[in-house]
Design a protein around this nucleic acid. Structure first.
Lengths: 206, 206
DNA sequence: TCAATAATTTACCCGTCAGCATATTGCTTG
DNA sequence: CAAGCAATATGCTGACGGGTAAATTATTGA
């Protein structure tokens, strides 16, 4: 049962929650610094300093630098996968579902963990992590291709080269990871919506 | 006057040409390794080893690592600027000129120096070089916007948000710097042509 | 109250790499 | 042929960052 009043003595699951919260804070601080300065330029000491703790504490919660980065990109890819699953379950034409996915995709890429997925070069990770990372990204690409193929099948999308179209769309939507600033004036939803309109509609006047 | 037969003794401008050739070889080796392993992972010693020379020779021809990288990206940006100038001088509608530029742009990005422009994060360079690099990239973006505006003015392109459209197109065409392999089966010209068709035409069936 | 365990720090080791100071070779020119 | 300069190599160093062991402090549970 819950204590009547807040006590300075934590129960065992409060302690577990505390630990999780700290772990989360470390991860958040890490991904912010990785994105801001680049993985190599951001030392674990910098990350620790940004939280007012010391380097070994990071090792305590997350392990070595490779594991920290891998967890960051995994978070990002998970968000993208969720978006793909949600889009697949939507009603409407294949094009409708694809557009919905692309908008979510783009917004995730402008967020901390999504940005990290794009800004992280494979070479930054160890051989094993890099292979797992590529596999995860491959899943997202497969989902994008599935959505494209569904649209082509129901006639809402032209019969394009699926592989290349997928790369083209992803490339365009990934780019904000490099130029978009969270503190800027353009809101992620607006950017996402406009980009998707440009990509699906083309440049020609109607 | 030119020597009657090839002699082991070089004239002074032969020597100058030799030097230029070596400088060029070093730069080429550097950009290849930077692209393959990433700037940080590629040490100057690796670059030297790939040519069978020693590290100080690189300093002799190109200066410190920052200068080497800056020269690589400058080469790439120069190619892009030339392509923009050439496209502007072409006949046809604004859309025609833009499409021509986009195809060239894309092919350059699949080449050594162009790839390096995209794969090089600003943080890799010193403060000064980074600022100059951003200025150079800004020129290319301006050229892209000019071409877009010309197309909008003559009615061959819909009245879109120029800034965002420019980013969208560039993002899509930059992405092959990350996935395209020079030794693969898809030829850069084909990839470029198809991507430009997708981008200008959109996804809808006609 | 005391032992056990978790959280966190301090201090250190080790490898790597950019950059340089110094040799050495060999071509070129007066 | 001598003097000098260009090209290249060897070897050093100083900084920095990842990673860890051991010491310290807080927290729980018996």
């Amino acid at each position: 049962m819950a204590p009547m009043q807040t006590s300075p003595f934590r129960t065992s699951d409060q302690r577990k929650a505390d630990r999780e919260e700290k772990r989360e804070a470390v991860l958040r601080a890490a991904v912010r610094l990785f994105n801001e300065r680049g993985f190599h330029a951001a030392s674990l000491e910098d990350v620790a300093a940004s939280l007012g703790i010391s380097k070994p504490t990071i090792y305590h919660y997350l392990g070595n630098k490779d594991q920290v980065l891998f967890e960051c990109v995994t978070r990002g890819v998970d968000q993208l996968r969720d978006a793909a699953d949600a889009a697949k379950a939507l009603p409407g034409t294949g094009l409708d579902r694809l557009r919905s996915f692309l908008r979510c995709y783009s917004e995730i890429i402008m967020d901390d963990f999504g940005r990290c997925v794009i800004r992280t070069a494979d070479e930054a990770l160890t051989h094993e992590s890099s292979a797992r990372f590529r596999a995860l990204k491959r899943e997202i690409d497969d989902a994008m291709r599935e959505l494209l193929e569904a649209g082509i099948a129901d006639g809402s999308i032209a019969p394009l080269d699926v592989r290349l179209t997928s790369f083209t769309l992803a490339g365009a939507l990934n780019w904000p990871a490099r130029w978009h600033r969270a503190d800027g004036k353009s809101r992620p939803e607006d950017v996402a919506a406009k980009m998707v309109d440009i990509l699906t509609g083309g440049l020609a006047p109607r």
